[in-house]
Amino acid sequence: MPSARRVRFLVMVGMAVIVTTLFFTSKFGSDESRAFQDFYGKTVNAMERKRGSGGAQIIMDGKGATAVSEAKDKDGDGSVGEDDVQQAKEMAERLRAAEQRAKDQANAKAPLKPDAPSEVVGVGSSAGGQNRKLKDKEASADAKDESDPASKAEAALNELLRKSPVVVFSKSYCPYSKRAKGVLLEKYTIDPAPYIVELDEHPMGKELQAKLGEMTGRSTVPNIMVNGKSIGGSDEINELDARKTLIDKIKSMGNKRVSMKERFGKNGPKGGDQ
């Protein structure tokens, strides 16, 4: 038949296992866990007092901590030995470990607590987030523009058109371009001087020619532009020159930004604008 000490020991171990199981499976929060632990501690202490026999008296304080108040003679040898003290300590440590596991389990199941105001106030803002979104959007648009050949061609074309009020888009080997340039540059004096763009030598020549076709409806060369508008190609320039209206045409489209005169007349050089 088992001794009274072993029976009490088994009872305490069984209760510790039950408490641990209840805490792992329950959904109580930390407050309910402490209330249950207090109830359990008081019950154990009352049982010990009522039994009045040997065994470690376990006291559970309001915070759930356990302590061994005294170790009693468990083996009935008439004295409290080191084995009695050691058993009492081991029992207290097992109960404390079971209690801590139950607390951790309850805290894990409890809802998350909000951050303290000191850790929240001043961290980020909706304006900052919106500014970041706008910057990201602009950066994305810029990256798209830089990678889009059509956009790059448009930017290059606009830059060329700012070089001079009169811009001639030509190809160095094209006979029609040579004839148009001969009329404009050799027969007339134009100030500011026309800016010549040889599309076959330009790194974006094909893209520029395609963009000019979209802008002016003329996809061939030469294409003579005055203030960003086309006055035609070789045939149109020669026809205006034959009618003696080329100067008036360019000056009217130049909007007083261009001065133009014929270099030589039938009897020699001419002076002044025409």
Rank of each mutant, 00 (worst) to 15 (best):
G233N: 05
A110L: 04
A102D: 02
G14S: 08
E32I: 06
E207V: 05
S170H: 06
V13R: 14
R6G: 00
F264I: 04
V19D: 12
D73P: 00
A102H: 02
P114Y: 07
G128D: 14
A139H: 01
P165K: 04
Q100F: 11
G62T: 09
A65Q: 06
G213S: 11
M47A: 12
E159G: 12
D191C: 05
E146W: 01
G55N: 11
D148Q: 09
G55L: 09
K256A: 11
G129Y: 01
S252Q: 06
V121D: 01
V258E: 01
S234L: 05
L240Q: 15
K74D: 11
V17T: 10
A242I: 01
M253Y: 08
T43L: 13
D115G: 14
L22R: 08
S177W: 01
V168K: 06
P111R: 07
K74F: 10
M91C: 10
M204I: 05
G81Q: 15
A106V: 10
Y173A: 12
G52R: 09
S140A: 11
Q57T: 14
D142E: 15
E201I: 00
D248S: 12
R5T: 02
A210N: 10
K206S: 05
R179Q: 08
A92F: 01
K261D: 06
N45F: 05
R179S: 06
G76I: 00
K163I: 00
Q86L: 14
S259Q: 12
P175C: 02
F23D: 06
P222K: 15
I250G: 05
L212M: 13
A16R: 11
M253N: 05
E207P: 07
G271I: 07
K50M: 01
N238P: 00
Q105V: 03
T245Y: 02
G271P: 00
R94P: 00
K72C: 06
D142Q: 15
V44E: 08
A56W: 09
I237S: 12
R6W: 10
L95R: 08
R243S: 08
D145R: 14
I18T: 13
S164F: 02
L134V: 02
R8I: 07
Q100W: 04
